[in-house]
Design a protein around this nucleic acid. Structure first.
Lengths: 230, 230
DNA sequence: GCAATTGCTTGATGTTAATCAAGACAAAGG
DNA sequence: CCTTTGTCTTGATTAACATCAAGCAATTGC
């Protein structure tokens, strides 16, 4: 693992408050690997051997059952995934695959657990991270259960607009977005068409929102579902 | 707060590994209250003032948006709720109301945060609890996104069967169960009727599963969605 | 005892979303 | 270059689910 990679992930809230010693020690067993696009990193049900951090590229978390598959989240640099499985030493609940060429840090799960059982600062950082993850998934559930597919799309676009401005790129393929939003690709296409009347212009991956007020009237965004933290 | 109540909640994994001193200290600011049925305990969006523990009765966690409402979970003794909001000092994401007459322990959130910032054992217990909560919600999302409403009901019944035996009581009203499972009461009625062909007999709140193998063939339960821990 | 209420069920109907099928388009590879 | 492949879109159809309306116990309150 290059020193460069270490300084990159050092800034993560998870690691920021650790002592230099504890961090170095944790990094001793870690290594970095670059994966091509569309490579399976982990499979749901497998025992959790490594804690993962994406430092380049992007990773899709997905789940499957009975021949069906759904996208649960996409992870972009710099962020970690499957912390909960690592902590509990439990099987992965989700599978992960690279979307594009990705650089991933792998830390043996047992090292993470060992560190967290002695280091108060690290343990507190983990609490904070897990609490955030939990709240994100709860918001996601509310989105799914309380909103129609067009409403979910409208709110998704508004969230992107808030983070990236009135003109932005969908950061994933439409089929993946559809799955993430809990609908079929065909339905996403039609939902986009519905939103044209609300000033949504989509050209390939590029989206422009021309009448924010209109789409907000439809989407009715709320911090309790759509804000990152709160 | 009665000494009796303290010994009751002391057995919670959250508190079990704390020192006597730390626990007593945390309990100093806590108090117990008994609420009648159908009383609102917390409202989503409100600042998180208290960490809650149910020691008698039961509590419904629900969320609302745009005039719609959905049941997110029910909490039965002895268990806590809204730990994540407490830790993050963030607004509640869910509302809570008593289902029946309930005895609830209220611990000031600031006390919980103060304790967790100095006590390694407590902080680790919180990590474990949050990781479990997170995995529960992820399983819930998978259930919602990957299964039809009949499949969700079938798996719900199998989970109850696993915990309570072949003959068991629905522990909540059907309207609440319907909402929890992400469907309307009418649809739950019809789903139950569909499952009659698979050996599901429902009489009021009492359920009997006469052909487990049949319903399992339909429900296809998996530990990665349906097990409590794993 | 008898309204009045509440929760559940059923049927009819409407809406939403999934599926099936086909074609347009673009990127990738020989 | 042309085929191949995959994605996206569109239309037609079907399936799943929600809504509306009515009726039926069972309970509650007077």
């Amino acid at each position: 693992m290059r020193a460069n990679d270490q300084t990159e992930i050092r800034v993560l809230p998870l690691f920021r408050s650790m002592t230099e010693d504890a961090f170095d020690n944790l990094m001793r067993g870690a290594y970095v690997q670059t994966f091509p696009p569309h490579v399976d990193l982990i499979v749901e049900g497998d025992p959790c051997d490594f804690f993962h951090i994406v430092i380049e590229g992007s990773v899709e978390l997905f789940a499957a059952w009975n021949g069906r598959e759904t996208t649960m989240a996409t992870v972009s640099p710099i962020a970690s995934f499957i912390l909960a499985a690592t902590i509990k030493d439990a099987p992965y609940l989700m599978s992960a695959r690279t979307i594009e060429k990705s650089r991933i840090v792998l830390i043996p799960s047992s090292d993470v657990r060992a560190t967290f059982s002695t280091d108060l600062a690290f343990s507190q950082a983990i609490v904070d991270e897990l609490a955030s993850c939990y709240r994100t998934v709860v918001k996601n559930s509310k989105d799914l259960k309380l909103r129609s597919s067009v409403e979910r799309l409208a709110n998704y676009l508004l969230r992107q607009q808030r983070d990236q401005g009135n003109r932005f790129d969908l950061r994933m393929e439409k089929r993946r977005l559809a799955s993430y939003l809990g609908m079929t690709p065909e339905n996403l296409s039609r939902s986009i068409k519905v939103l044209r009347a609300y000033g949504v212009e989509v050209d390939g991956m590029s989206v422009t929102l021309t009448h924010i007020a209109d789409i907000e009237k439809l989407a009715k965004p709320t911090p309790l579902i759509d804000d990152k933290d709160s």
